[in-house]
């Protein structure tokens, strides 16, 4: 991975002492509830954790594989509803509902992947956008099963050996999940799977000619991402203790995409930074009321224009493919000269 030659002095300083800093950060994160002693800040931190998991999982699709999903909130919602329904209707504990949520969301992901991933990447965007809307409508409509617009209230908090989770326990759980997901994504990135995905992202035809099973790897990546989103949904359901379709609308999908695009696609840190910024932004700038949206837009545009790859990204959603210098119109008109893959 290339680094920009100009690096802030602060970062150089931190890099030199990265081991002590990493330990310090770990200690700070673990001690966080006892440092702040404020339930609000604890909740903000927990929300940031959920956002990091969602953004990191979407990054597998967008950043690693170069695909585009506009319906990540649907898989998040499917996970949340799976877990919520299992807990409230059948009394299934969180520890079983959690993996179940991941499996169900992953199955839906596989299904969507099978239907569209043989086609050009843009069809996945269309399909996932549609799937997100279908999911929302089904949740609203299937009243006997999902309670429709009434939502599901009274979802129990996770319990362990008869002890109900507190705010602090929820925080540690999401911290643990975050660490696991980040480590998992890091391992994917540096594995055979990650290399294959990056090869597909950079040049699908070349990747195929090298013997990479493009379709298989794409489905695998998409399924993994959807599974992780489902797991995040399960945690969210038991954390908020009420779910309704309002939490899984298209806006939520776009918010997750923005996290990835703002923080940086294709890197491990990018989605983490993006998730933190987007989650903390309304809290820190709450006093600006309506102007917040204006500043938010300005920040986003600035980043896209100055650094299309995102703040710490390696390859931007909004970046032109490096291989070609043809204009956007020429690309649209002459797709076959571009290998037919973009």
């Amino acid at each position: 991975m290339k680094l920009k030659s100009i690096r802030p002095a602060f970062v150089s300083f931190v890099l030199r002492y990265r081991v002590p800093f990493a330990i310090l950060l770990g200690v700070l994160l673990v001690a966080y509830p006892w440092i702040v002693r404020n339930p609000y800040l604890l909740r903000v931190a927990t929300n940031v954790g959920i956002a990091i998991i969602l953004a990191s999982s979407l990054n597998i699709i967008i950043g690693f594989s170069g695909l585009f999903s506009l319906g990540h909130a649907a898989f998040y919602g499917i996970g949340a509803y799976t877990s919520a329904l299992l807990a409230t209707r059948l009394g299934v504990p969180f520890w079983l509902g959690f993996p179940a949520a991941g499996i169900v969301a992953g199955l839906f992901g596989t299904f969507i992947g099978f239907a569209t991933l043989r086609l050009r990447a843009v069809f996945l965007a269309f399909t996932t956008l549609g799937f997100g809307e279908i999911t929302r409508i089904v949740i609203l409509n299937w009243r006997d099963f999902t309670r429709g617009p009434l939502g599901i209230a009274g979802i129990p908090v996770p319990r362990l050996f008869g002890w109900s989770f507190t705010r602090e326990a929820n925080y540690y759980l999401i911290l643990l999940l975050c660490a696991a997901v980040i480590l998992f994504v890091y391992r994917i990135y540096h594995s055979r799977l990650g290399r294959a995905l990056i090869a597909i992202r950079e040049d699908e035809t070349a990747a195929r000619s090298m013997g990479i099973n493009v379709f298989g790897y794409k489905i695998l990546a998409f399924t993994i991402a959807c599974t992780i989103a489902g797991l995040a949904g399960s945690f969210f359901a038991h954390f908020q203790r009420y779910v309704s379709a309002d939490s899984f609308v298209a806006d939520e999908s776009f918010r997750i995409i923005t996290m990835v695009a703002l923080g940086g696609t294709g890197s491990i840190t990018g989605p983490i930074v993006g998730a933190m910024i987007l989650e903390l932004f309304p809290e820190v700038f709450g006093f600006l009321a309506g102007y917040r949206q204006v500043i938010y837009g300005a920040v986003l545009i600035t980043v896209i224009v100055l650094k299309p790859g995102g703040i710490v990204g390696v390859k931007g959603v909004f970046e032109k493919p490096r291989a070609t210098r043809r204009s956007w119109i020429a690309q649209a008109l002459l797709p076959r000269f571009n290998g037919g893959t973009r």
């Binding site: 991975m1 680094l3 602060f10 970062v11 931190v14 890099l15 990265r18 800093f21 990493a22 310090l24 950060l25 700070l28 994160l29 890091y186 990135y189 890197s267 491990i268 840190t269 983490i272 930074v273 933190m276 710490v312």
Partner: peptide
């Protein structure tokens, strides 16, 4: 990548 992770996390913290 690890170095950037550490640097940024400290910044955000």
């Amino acid at each position: 990548a690890k170095r950037i992770v550490v640097g940024l996390l400290v910044l955000v913290a």
